[in-house]
Amino acid sequence: MPSWGMTVDTDRCTGCEACVVACHAENNLPTVGPEQAAMGRTHQWIRVERYWEGEFPNIKAKFMPVMCQQCDAAPCEPVCPVNATYHTPDGLNAQVYNRCVGTRFCANNCPYTVRFFTWFTPSWDSPMNEQLNPDVSIRTSGIMEKCTFCVQRIRRAQDTAKDEKRAVKDGEIKPACAQACPAKVIVFGDLSDEDSEVSKLSRSNRGRRLLEELGTRPRVVYLSGGGA
């Protein structure tokens, strides 16, 4: 059984937000318009958080892409009354759209604030409706959604590998964000394979996990410092 994980090298991140755009295209994320966006109702399964370090003029912008951390002890999972979110055996924090009744408890209990709610039935102006990804369902109004590690790509690669009677190769699966990143910030792969790139990177002493003091056991490792 694979165990999916990700590393994010914040030292490499330029804050270009290509990952954000790629995620919108891949996962059929609705764009809500300026008014709703101002209310805080955007859908950004991945976002680039910008923090300033130091005081002007010796100031430095730090960028940190944040997506669902797919925690092994995810606080969002047990609070759902209808089992709409649970942990898959390969370590994904699954969100089952058609089970969700919209209590939004999961989002309240997510310390990373990476769950997104569909407040209104989404729509895409023509010709944007022509670019929707057929592999990803469109979410209706009133349900919760979040980063899936591009589960549609994971499952497709697994199916292809199965058809060709081989194992999934390291690097074969690339989530949209990792694929779009020009600076190679994001690396995705199987943590149970000790030789995979993500495995090696996650063991690096540059690694730390976001808010790991809360005991959520996140599956995303952030790399920074150490002169890389």
Binding site: A73, A74, C80
Partner: peptide, 9 residues
Amino acid sequence: AYPLVKGGM
């Protein structure tokens, strides 16, 4: 009846 792992519990 429908075992689902949630939050490592």
